[in-house]
Structure formats: structure tokens, C-alpha cells
Amino acid sequence: MSLSRQRRFVTPGPDETVEELARRAMPDQPLEGAVDAIKSWNLHVFVMRRPPGLMLGSDVIFVEPPLAHA
């Protein structure tokens, strides 16, 4: 049985900033827009985390918007 496609994510490297992560995961996007997009897709990190935006090595960081699902 093959796996259905799921939303693409990466995990942050040690001490990686959101800008560095955006460059790594979305190299074809303008940086500012990519960072904004990543924040909007990962509010669990950029809003709910204390302090907000603290990325951890164990985090799931989505690098695309939610997928439409049946």
C-alpha cells in the first residue's frame, strides 16, 4: 500500500533561524514572502510558542500550505 501525499515539512537545524530555514526550504521564493508564508503556516510556533518564534529541533515546520483533502 502506497502512502498518500501529506503536507511537506522540515525540521529546523540546530540554531537555524526562520530566514535560514526559508532559504533552505523555499529557495525559489523572495525571502520576505517565504518567511511570512512559513509563519502563516506554522502558527503553533510563531504564535503559541513561549517565546513566540522559538524554533526547536523537534519542531515540524510546514513549508507549504495545507493540502486539500477528501
Binding site: 508564508a37 504564535v47 503559541m48 500550505p65 495545507p66 486539500a68
Partner: peptide
């Protein structure tokens, strides 16, 4: 509920304070 740029809606749960 957020509607993302691709038109897909997705829920985000915020704690009481937020």
C-alpha cells in the same frame, strides 16, 4: 479557521489567553 492563499481552509487552535 484560516483560508490560505491556495484556497484551502485549515483550523488553528489558540489557547485562552491568546
Amino acid at each position: 479557521r484560516l483560508r490560505h492563499a491556495n484556497g484551502v481552509e485549515s483550523p488553528v487552535v489558540l489557547d485562552e489567553e491568546t
